[in-house]
């Protein structure tokens, strides 16, 4: 979740047709302050923003945050806190423990 600005609250309100557990990802030109992406979202409106200058892994990284994952200090992994542009040996890895964390997220439902 994290704290959000009034502009983020306004953006994340766009959820027409989405279920409460659906994660909305907004592709934006830029954020203030500048980031590749941001997983902060208002309560009850799960989602993330991904900037135009992001890497090809930023979307997955931010959704990982929304599903409860934290940064790791390993550039072989999707959740590296050093920047997904520094990922080595792509595609990046997710640990079994990270998979378990995402499975336990309230946003993860059986389909």
């Amino acid at each position: 979740m994290g704290s959000v600005t009034s502009e983020q609250a306004e953006l994340f309100a766009f959820r027409d047709g989405m279920q409460p557990t659906d994660i909305a990802v907004f592709f934006v030109r830029s954020t203030v302050p500048p980031t590749n992406g941001c997983a902060a979202h208002p309560g009850g409106r799960p989602g993330a923003a991904v900037a135009a200058g992001a890497t090809r892994w930023t979307l997955g990284h931010e959704v990982g945050h929304v599903l409860g994952l934290d940064h790791v200090d390993n550039n072989d992994q999707l959740m590296t806190g050093n920047g997904t542009g520094r990922i080595t040996n792509p595609p990046p890895d997710l640990l079994p423990s990270e998979g378990a964390t995402m499975d336990q997220s309230a946003l993860t439902i059986d389909i």
Binding site: P33, P34, C38, A39, T58
Partner: peptide, 12 residues
């Protein structure tokens, strides 16, 4: 670069 190449830089 190490500070800024992060997806979410910690500006503080």
């Amino acid at each position: 670069r190490a500070a800024l190449e992060r997806d979410e830089p910690d500006y503080t």
